[in-house]
Design a protein around this nucleic acid. Structure first.
Lengths: 138, 138
DNA sequence: CGCGGTTATGCGCTCGCTTTGCATAACTGG
DNA sequence: CCAGTTATGCAAAGCGAGCGCATAACCGCG
């Protein structure tokens, strides 16, 4: 799919440059071989959760209070996985807390030492789970 | 989606009545408001993992002996993952048993405390694995 | 307020994947 | 081998994702 690669590129662009408008982004994407209108970019940013801060687009960092309970980061992987990065030794307790929330889109969780794999039903559920888990630990 | 609801209805029908042919099933579905040809029903049954036993369609049950050996539930997640819910502390032994079965569609398993992630090749393999693992613990 | 610049969104089109029906092949029990 | 039942190749219909266009909404600033 074209969209996914484009979004990857968008992330890499906003990480490496200071970008202030969707126009700029569009131009840079085009130079990288991705033709996309401002409409699409707007939707991409929304979907990626990118926000404008101090006039530039950036990826918001995971919540601060969360790490108190062991959660350091939360990322989607593929279509049906969410990976939670935790403080060393905290993965199990993070997993337990997530399990207790009984989020319906979650099929199961698997805790290692500092990482939890969260299996979800499918792509759409993935987004929902990201949101709900962040809320849970927010 | 129409298909999902129809398949739900099929499950409820074969649970409550003795149904011996796809024709009967088709008729009953129609009475319930689902128009579907025998082709579709055949594919639905395949997809649901329904089997014909003693001349009637039934859902193979896992529950009996399974939980004795630690397996509580088995669910697909996305396209290439199956999640096995286990009794606390039993995940490793469940995983070992699955590994020993050497099911070819299984790429690998990963056990936590009460959950096993089973990675499979793709969607079709997923279905097959669900079936085979249920058999294994049936 | 109004204005230019920026971003969000309703609408409709396209495209590709899924689901379906038809016809027919394959299978099964007797 | 036969009648009844189930599986399947194929092409069409259905459906949703992604997109662009046009335009509305928003935002900072004078």
């Amino acid at each position: 799919m074209h969209k996914t690669k484009r979004q990857q590129k968008i992330l890499s662009l906003i990480r490496t440059r200071r970008i202030g408008t969707q126009q700029e982004l569009s131009a840079m994407l085009e130079r990288a071989g991705f033709v996309a209108t401002q409409s699409s970019i707007s939707r991409d940013l929304e979907e990626l959760g990118v926000v404008k801060h101090h006039g530039y687009y950036t990826m918001p960092r995971a919540k601060e209070g969360a790490s108190a309970r062991g959660l350091l980061g939360l990322d989607p992987a593929g279509d049906c996985l969410v990976v939670a990065k935790c403080e060393p030794g905290m993965a199990s307790s993070v997993a337990v807390e997530i399990d207790r929330a009984a989020i319906p889109e979650i099929v199961g969780t698997l805790a290692g030492e500092d990482t939890v794999f969260i299996a979800v039903l499918e792509r759409k559920a993935q987004r929902a789970v990201l949101k709900k888990v962040l809320e849970l630990f927010g």
